[in-house]
Nucleic acid binder design. Sequence first.
DNA 1: TTGATAGGCAAGTGAACACTTGCCTATCCT
DNA 2: AGGATAGGCAAGTGTTCACTTGCCTATCAA
Lengths: 100, 100
Amino acid sequence: MADDLFKALADPTRRTILDELAEKSGQTLFEICSRLSMKHQLGISRQAVSQHLAVLEAAGLVETRREGRYKFHDLNTAPLRHITERWLERGAPGPEESTP
Amino acid sequence: MADDLFKALADPTRRTILDELAEKSGQTLFEICSRLSMKHQLGISRQAVSQHLAVLEAAGLVETRREGRYKFHDLNTAPLRHITERWLERGAPGPEESTP
DNA sequence: TTGATAGGCAAGTGAACACTTGCCTATCCT
DNA sequence: AGGATAGGCAAGTGTTCACTTGCCTATCAA
């Protein structure tokens, strides 16, 4: 749960993808690829970006919708809103993992 | 900068250490070790915890002070406060990496 | 139908990471 | 002094992770 979220945020390329989706919502895979290449000089393959998007989607940060042969990606910032309160708020921290 | 912070938060054991330091500030290495073992059933070596603390310190999340043979660890939540605003605030995302 | 476009699946590779083991230094107490 | 306590350094190991390569499916336009 929180694990997927923090792991998704751990990679700089994924954070840049979130930046791009925050700037323009509803981008396709190819659109994101071009932007990473053009604006950020990231020489990265389409499959790599696709895998990053899968990680972001598993974390709930990206939602997708299919229309014909296009798949649009939208940013969902909801999971981000309260992830730090765990340490910012004084009180019970609340354990995360029970069985390692 | 932000890279160290997100990488530090990516590990569940490190997040648990932050939980413990949020609950009780100024703990020593051995104190943190016992708590991880007792409260969280984490069978982890002292050196592993020490390495985690080094990562957290590099991220600015933990600050240390030496007193004699004791080294006390304090939580610093300052780096956590604005890490999500980058995507929550509408506006310029601001690039992170310029030269990979 | 043919070709082009948009995307998916899966195996393989190299590097980063979490963790251990073994030994060493420093401080305190008796 | 000598043992005990608190911590540090460094090499080694196994796993995870980011990324590539190669091939395959689906939709649309001519």
